[in-house]
Amino acid sequence: MSRQIQNIPASSNKSIVQRLGGQNVVVFLIVVALFGFFCIVSPNFRRYSTILSILDYSYYITLIAIGVTFPLITGGVDLSIGTGLICYSLIGGYLVVYQGWPVWIGMIVCVLCGAIIGFINGFLVGTMNLPPFLATLCTMMMTRGLGSICSTGLGIPWPTAGTEGGWFRTIFKLNIGDMKLPLGFLWILLLTALMSFVLNHTKVGRYIIAIGSNKEATRLSGINTKYIYIAAYVISGTFAGLASIAYSAIFASVYPGTGAGFELEGIGGAIIGGVSMTGGVGSITGTLLGVFVICILKTGLPFIGLQANWQQIITGIVLITAVLIDLSRNVKGTKSITTAFKKR
């Protein structure tokens, strides 16, 4: 009895703490190493403007990655975020550009649309028990169609900086004289902190982890898992809505039919950052770091002479690698195959 107390908990406790902490440190080192690598190889990469553009392109990916972390921790996935963010941006932009609505209302519409699609996803998964990847695949296709329908198939140019309503672009990039400040990064950090708090210190977050850990036990503890699923997917959808604002602010125009593939960058980032495909494990900080691995790769590749199309291939490979690492980590983490069997 007392022997067990001395042995088992004490030793394995440490290793787990090390592993979780270690994961973030490792990913951070990868980020630094990648950045260093590109800096050394390409002189053009070592410029403030490059760093700015890495950050610019990272905002919307980071936002959807933070959002998708929540469904991933429940053991599900949200594939609708990529085409979704384009759809929301098209709808919001259409209202602003062609209907003359104020920009701030357009932005709210973006976020609201995201929350609604998130709610539908959560309902399909939590209440109707559809497999998450299929349910969200359907909403992915539907948002793609809806975006085109709502914008009547046109590309939408959100107001440019300097014109009326163009102020919203300064949310992410502030010009002070000749200096451009990546203001968006500040918001990302704030949102990371906020969502970390939600995940680790609120009931919703706690129950999301609980569901990912053992759905049946969570239900038996008297928790209404349906609501928790809906919450997880609404968070994901809302962040896709926020991402749509970031996307509109960075790019001159938004085109219908694009957006497929963004979700993989988001999911890939989350998994690199230590979110487990089997659910129950993950941190927002890890996700943030993971996304930067992908973003630096994406921005860096053209600097070493690979054309933009390689990005898709690289994203695919990075995603598979991340999942393979996650799987090997899981095998090591579980005590024996039997416990792994039992969990399923």
Binding site: I313, G316, I317, L319
Partner: peptide, 10 residues
Amino acid sequence: FITSMAIMQI
């Protein structure tokens, strides 16, 4: 679903 999404991209 993850593999095939990745293959799709590739």
